[in-house]
């Protein structure tokens, strides 16, 4: 199973006495696009933040790209440089230009030369369609543009998998589509993606598998057509009826 990029086995996590994740099992294959949805507080963000160990899990195993994540790990850097992450609030580095935001990762981690990092950065900025903003600072950009820079920044590290943590939740409706378009084209090019999102149209169009989480558990998963057409569980039906009502 060398094609498995993320393997989650019986993972549980607690915040103090509160159990956020309960026996989660999940495998992500190379090239797979997965959308995780669920009500707020269901642990979906927490789950994907465990994949690059921004959060620690207490029970079970998570294997990312062949490396087991655990407490005393030295290889956490090796995992993180192969796992790109896009955040809800972009988290661009405000004191650097857009171009520098994209260059620092390759330069400081992979030891790539400045000229080469610049080339890669411009190439990916081109791909998210904002090369002309390269020398601006993040505050000068719109939300949608900032999020696309954040995607480019992650792509510059040439990760094996991209994690999206509600990438469009903080955006205006008009800007949502530009970010979703970028994500869709990324998916078409074969990038392995795990997205926490409420954009059901995106899930329908792009996802290979939709996962529904509730109260720290994976309640249901399936191909998007089946998932949306006949959800099996009551909780899923309720969630979908709420979210698709509008």
């Amino acid at each position: 199973m060398s094609d498995t990029i993320i393997d989650v086995r019986n993972v549980s996590k607690w915040y103090g006495a509160f159990r956020v994740l309960t026996d989660v099992n999940l495998t992500v294959q190379k090239g797979e696009r997965i959308v995780i949805c669920g009500p707020s507080g269901s642990g979906k963000s927490t789950l994907i933040r465990c994949f690059n160990r921004l959060e620690a899990h207490q029970q079970g195993d998570i294997v990312v790209n062949g490396i087991i994540l655990h407490d005393k790990m030295r290889e956490v850097g090796a995992v993180r440089k192969n796992v790109g992450m896009v955040f809800q609030h972009f988290n661009l580095f405000p004191h650097m230009t857009v171009l520098m935001n994209c260059m620092v990762g390759p330069m400081w981690i992979k030891g790539v030369s400045q000229a080469e990092a610049r080339k890669t950065a411009l190439q990916f900025l081109e791909r998210v369609r904002i090369p002309e903003q390269a020398n601006k600072y993040p505050v000068q950009l719109s939300g949608g543009q900032q999020q696309r820079v954040a995607i480019a920044r992650s792509l510059c590290m040439q990760p094996a998998v991209m994690l999206f943590d509600e990438p469009t939740s903080a955006l205006d409706p008009e800007m949502v589509s530009e970010v979703l378009e970028t994500m869709t084209s990324l998916a078409r090019e074969g990038m392995t993606m795990v997205c926490v999102t409420h954009e059901m149209a995106f899930a329908r169009a792009v996802a290979d598998r939709v996962i529904f989480m509730n109260a720290g558990q994976i309640v249901e998963q399936g191909k998007p057509e089946e998932f949306f057409k006949n959800p099996q569980h009551e909780r899923t039906k309720l969630f979908l009826s709420q979210i698709l009502k509008h």
């Binding site: 955040f87 580095f93 400081w108």
Partner: peptide, 19 residues
């Protein structure tokens, strides 16, 4: 979020702090 972004790219504590 700045810590998270920096650490998620793979920067260690020292680089995150200094840069």
């Amino acid at each position: 979020g700045q810590w998270e972004a920096s650490r998620s790219i793979g920067f260690g504590f020292g680089v995150t702090m200094r840069k």
